[in-house]
Design a protein around this nucleic acid. Sequence first.
DNA 1: ACTGTGATGTATCATTTTGATACATCAAGA
DNA 2: TCTTGATGTATCAAAATGATACATCACAGT
Lengths: 187, 187
Amino acid sequence: MRKSYALELAILGLLQDSALHGYELRKRLSTLLGAFRAISFGALYPALRTLTEQGFITETSDPNAAGPALSGKRARITYALTEAGTAHLTAMLRESGPETWDDEGFGVRFAFFSATEAEVRRLILEGRRSRLSERRAALRESLAATRERLDSYTLELQRHGLDGVENEMRWVDNLIAAEDRSARPTG
Amino acid sequence: MRKSYALELAILGLLQDSALHGYELRKRLSTLLGAFRAISFGALYPALRTLTEQGFITETSDPNAAGPALSGKRARITYALTEAGTAHLTAMLRESGPETWDDEGFGVRFAFFSATEAEVRRLILEGRRSRLSERRAALRESLAATRERLDSYTLELQRHGLDGVENEMRWVDNLIAAEDRSARPTG
DNA sequence: ACTGTGATGTATCATTTTGATACATCAAGA
DNA sequence: TCTTGATGTATCAAAATGATACATCACAGT
């Protein structure tokens, strides 16, 4: 399946803290990473259905759920992690493949770093760094190759893109250094 | 139609410089902005077909095109701007609505700033700035609200997101200042 | 008291995009 | 020779978007 790794992980990770209904889940999903780019319901609800079918979460129609928003008329559907779901989440948090450091998945993966072992954290951060390094190299080459062929605005756009990647790399480097310090504080 | 504004503009803009075939178009599309996230052929070819149907570009099957890559066996399809396409592109470059400063469209729009009037450039940059400002406000509020509820990694992720937006705003501010200087150099 | 706007809440659907794949040619290196 | 990788066009199932529909509630303005 090509179904979004990030979305699945994010749902399971958020539900680990507390059971939630779709609307609230979407709000938290949006802020989980950078607070923009809300996921659509057309992606969320099918994902929830799939996870339910897989037995990782349960749907509970809850007519008088917590919160004063609904006083009992309309049912909210609350989603909660099952034991199988917890196990699956734990398994996901032990992985460190490309899907954990690519653009799509890294942010969500990082958000759940507290529940990730230090060794795996390290692998993911190194993978992320390497991915960014590739990108930086491609951008530099592209900039060097087109420096005199392109107009100044296009050039400025590429230069800005390179800046962004370099900034991101510094951030990751600092995170790696911080992991090192906390791993061996006597160092 | 909800068809991608950015893709349409990027194709027309790239074809204004020179006629290109699909593969080359995709490569330039990828580097046009930040050099990553290549568009898929499944989006490119339908877009080219639509533009052809609208009369904005022409398809020319070119059995022995320039370049040593193909020596005559397999036909490459070269796409070129028509007069109607040039007119349409010119019209697009005069617009300054939300689609020109949203994430999706801003990068491509900026890449063609040389072919955009100073007044329109100004409007787009201001729009972009305002969009980023909204985002910054949302992120700050989110950070303030969750500062003590969230774990440190999630918090760090949000802080980093805010950094990125602030960095982007500084960049836009500098661009606006540069536009001001070039508009009235005696100031 | 009325009225509109916007948040909350679940849900579907046409259209678009992705990511994979298929096919074919050519260059370069093992 | 054989395999890998770039060039090149093209399609397709699966997935995501953006719009929309429906319904309740709070709140502000008039």
